[in-house]
């Protein structure tokens, strides 16, 4: 067994081990750590394949950025203080695990059939030389791949704007109460703190809330939110 093959099997074992740990772990944070191990092993595979630059990118983007982002995501969304999946039904998942298992197994059978049944022929011109990062840069600036290069920048711009728009907590002072009501559906919740310049908005909010029946559904909440928004707008000007 050559060194390359040995390295492949070690890395592949780490990669699959990480994934299986993810699938069996209880604590969400352990799942993320297990997955970061998988991402690291995949970076090793890239280096083995002569894709050094890609390996480095993989470590920076996946093990670095995305895993940390995921940890932040988990810390920002604690579930009742517990970060574990409930012990009562840990394996039941969100949909029928049996269906998911059959789907995955069937898909793997098809992929295995296709890959193992193919006699791959290597072209005499194929190369195993490591690829220079400069070559990738050159390709990105060639006339053909310039356009995709531009488009990916637009995609990232949209993702940036979109993430800000969605995640920004822009109305925590007034809309917070509206959201709490909509969520609970019953008693109008009082926000814990009221800033002086928004007192009027809150008064409007409370009037609107008390005017409704308690059992009403969320359809008025939107109008109420508009009302509150209008008052806030007026306060600003």
């Amino acid at each position: 067994m050559s060194g390359g093959t040995l390295a492949f099997f070690i890395l592949a074992a780490f990669g699959l081990g990480g994934v299986t740990t993810m699938l069996t772990a209880r604590r969400v944070i352990h799942m993320v750590l297990a997955l970061s191990l998988s991402f690291l092993a995949i970076a090793g595979l890239y280096v083995l394949l002569g894709a050094d630059f890609l390996g480095v990118v993989q470590i920076i983007v996946y093990t670095g950025a995305i895993t940390i982002l995921a940890v932040f995501g988990i810390m920002l969304t604690p579930h009742g203080g517990l970060e574990t999946e409930p012990k009562s039904a840990p394996r039941q998942g969100r949909r029928m695990p049996l269906v998911a298992f059959l789907l995955a197994a069937g898909l793997f059978a098809v992929l295995f059939w296709a890959v193992a049944g193919t006699r791959f022929a290597r072209s005499p011109f194929a190369s195993d030389e490591p690829v220079d990062a400069a070559a990738i840069g050159g390709l990105l600036l060639s006339s053909r791949y310039l356009l995709p290069f531009e488009v990916i920048s637009v995609v990232l711009l949209v993702a940036l704007i979109g993430a800000i728009v969605l995640a920004k907590d822009d109305a925590s002072d007034t809309a917070g109460s509206v959201q709490a009501e909509e969520h609970a559906g019953t008693s109008p919740a009082e926000p814990p703190t009221v800033r002086a310049d928004n007192a009027e908005a809150h008064r409007a909010d409370r009037t609107a809330a008390s005017a409704r029946d308690t059992g009403e559904s969320g359809q008025h909440v939107e109008k109420e939110a508009q009302l509150v928004g209008a008052v806030r707008e007026a306060n600003r000007e």
Binding site: L166, D170, A175, Q179, E182, H183, G218, A225
Partner: peptide, 8 residues
């Protein structure tokens, strides 16, 4: 799709 941010 998620622009109605105050709407569950």
């Amino acid at each position: 799709v998620g622009l109605k941010k105050t709407h569950l």
